[in-house]
């Protein structure tokens, strides 16, 4: 699968690393060059090399031991040209996980409605806004609610 992750903070970097570990092609986008350090130095590649990798055909078994590198694209996630540069036209999945809810919604709307990416997921920080995302037909994840739920479960289990 070819995935694009928008936002290279803690969530984005972790997500990108996990996807790569599972053998997917990942491109990470961020407007801040320093943000890519979150990925770990050995993993980054310049965006000039970020041309969409075609996954190996069915006849060639993928070597699981070799870790794919992560392509990094610098720029705004709501800029059509930057999204194209990140290979959104060939992407199978798009995840917007910046810390700005509205940026995430706008980027996801673009991915879904302009570029027709099959799988689009947005992160939201403010649980109250989840309703907005759903009204716009977007799939969302709210770390604050998930975190609270996990703590709640652990507390009850500990009893």
């Amino acid at each position: 699968m070819k995935a694009i992750v928008l936002g290279c903070g803690r969530v984005g970097a972790h997500l990108a690393n996990s996807l790569v570990e599972h053998g997917h092609h990942v491109t990470v986008m961020d407007r801040e060059p320093k943000a890519f350090r979150m990925l770990g130095d050995d993993l980054m590649i310049e965006h000039s090399d970020a041309a969409p990798h075609r996954s190996a055909g069915p006849g060639t078994p993928r070597a699981k031991t070799v870790r794919q590198k992560i392509a990094c694209v610098l720029g705004l996630g709501i800029d059509e040209d930057v999204l194209r540069q990140a290979g959104i036209e060939e992407a199978d999945a798009f995840a917007a996980v910046t810390d700005s809810d509205y940026t995430n919604i706008m980027a996801c709307l673009m991915a879904k409605e302009i570029f027709r990416v099959p799988r689009v997921i947005a992160r939201i920080s403010e649980p109250k806004r989840e309703k907005i995302f759903h009204q716009l037909g977007l799939e969302t994840i709210c770390p604050s609610i998930l975190g609270a739920q996990s703590v709640f479960d652990l507390l009850l289990k500990a009893k």
Partner: peptide, 16 residues
């Protein structure tokens, strides 16, 4: 002053 906000809120205004 933020395009993202203006876009999303206009969408909500129209669609919802």
């Amino acid at each position: 002053g933020e395009d993202e906000t203006n876009l999303v809120l206009s969408q909500i205004a129209k669609r919802f």
